[in-house]
Design a protein around this nucleic acid. Structure first.
Lengths: 193, 193
DNA sequence: TTCATTTCTTGCCATTTGGCAAGTGCTTTT
DNA sequence: AAAAGCACTTGCCAAATGGCAAGAAATGAA
């Protein structure tokens, strides 16, 4: 698999020249995941920053009763990293797992930092990735407060229909903040329309 | 008011030496807010990064029906900034308003970036501020999904009792994801214990 | 202090969502 | 092909939360 998608992604999200982008992309290593493989396991310190070129991943942790809660879905053509563990070298409270076969490119913390250090334009990219993640969580939080479950369902199926193709309902349900029973009912209502 | 709190905060959140921290703090300008003054108004581009030394602030936006939704409370001794607007120079969807009289220190985007550029240790600080904000939103999202309103209330009153001293219930309610009516009932139940 | 305004509480009932358990259908195993 | 195991659906009822309006309390203005 070529690094073209990675280069394009960096290019589109930073002010770096094509030549610099090429140099940056050189430092990423190809990486593949089988279905259900973990990119990050809770309790470990995350040391890799991943560009997901193909496939679908899911982040999850547990509530106080030990139930899995899906905290995020990573579609194709996205950077995948757990900011807290990766950037502060602390133990991760989250898991990130491949839902389908996944292909992408990773870079270690040390190498990434070296690039941030030497290439100001790439620092912009790194910052923007953080800001983007932040913005998405804010929007999700707002949606949880202001929208009903059915609306949140509609939003997700509209923006990321591929999720419904590969992910179990209970995992989508916990992401939406409802039970699988409720999601099943919402689906039924929704399909009537 | 002295910059001591600002210096301490930077010191505690970055690997910079005391001398470097002094230099950094020099670039911040004192700034005061009367009660209800806005630090940021929606529709504007945020150009200031604020250290809040005294007082309490609130971020809010609106739901689709035009109701205010409190998205965050900023207690004393915290950096206050709207990451998306500040770092990407885009129009802010959020408002940040002083709930009490507030005192602090601000720095412009240009100056901050200049410091990030010339002081690697301070870049660490900037990154950590983003990561911290990110982590808090993740935790809040998780709490909205996994905890009941009463638990979220307890968590907030335990961690930030000062909020209940100054903020209207309807603003706290929207932050907790419930109506002011429900919050009033939760308070009543809680006080019985 | 008195009046007006705003904030908070409460009663009544509606809506949304959850919990549980049984049932259906699909897939995998042997 | 039978059995077992999952994932999903559905019926019944319970719990959590909301909506509205009236009243009480607090706050601010004159």
């Amino acid at each position: 698999m070529s690094k073209e998608a990675l280069r394009n992604y960096i290019q589109q999200n930073s002010p770096a020249s094509r030549l610099i982008v090429e140099t940056i992309a050189e430092h990423f290593e190809p990486r593949e995941f089988s279905k259900n493989d973990f990119f990050l396991k809770e309790g470990k310190i995350s040391n890799d920053y991943l560009f997901l070129a193909e496939g679908l991943m899911r982040a999850f942790s547990y509530d106080t009763n030990g139930n899995e809660v899906t905290t995020y879905f990573y579609p194709e053509n996205r950077m995948v990293f757990e900011a807290a563990s990766f950037f502060t070298h602390t133990i991760s409270a989250e898991n990130i797992q491949a839902i389908t076969v996944c292909k992408g490119f990773t870079i270690t913390f040390e190498k990434l930092n070296m690039l941030f250090h030497s290439i100001p334009e790439f620092r912009e990219f790194g910052r923007f990735m953080l800001v983007k993640g932040f913005v998405e969580f804010k929007q999700r939080t707002l949606a949880l407060i202001t929208k009903r479950a059915e609306e949140r369902y509609e939003d997700l199926i509209t923006s990321n229909p591929e999720i419904f193709q590969y992910v179990q309902l209970k995992h989508i349900a916990s992401y939406l903040g409802i039970t699988d029973t409720s999601l099943s009912r919402i689906r039924k209502e929704f399909s009537k329309k």
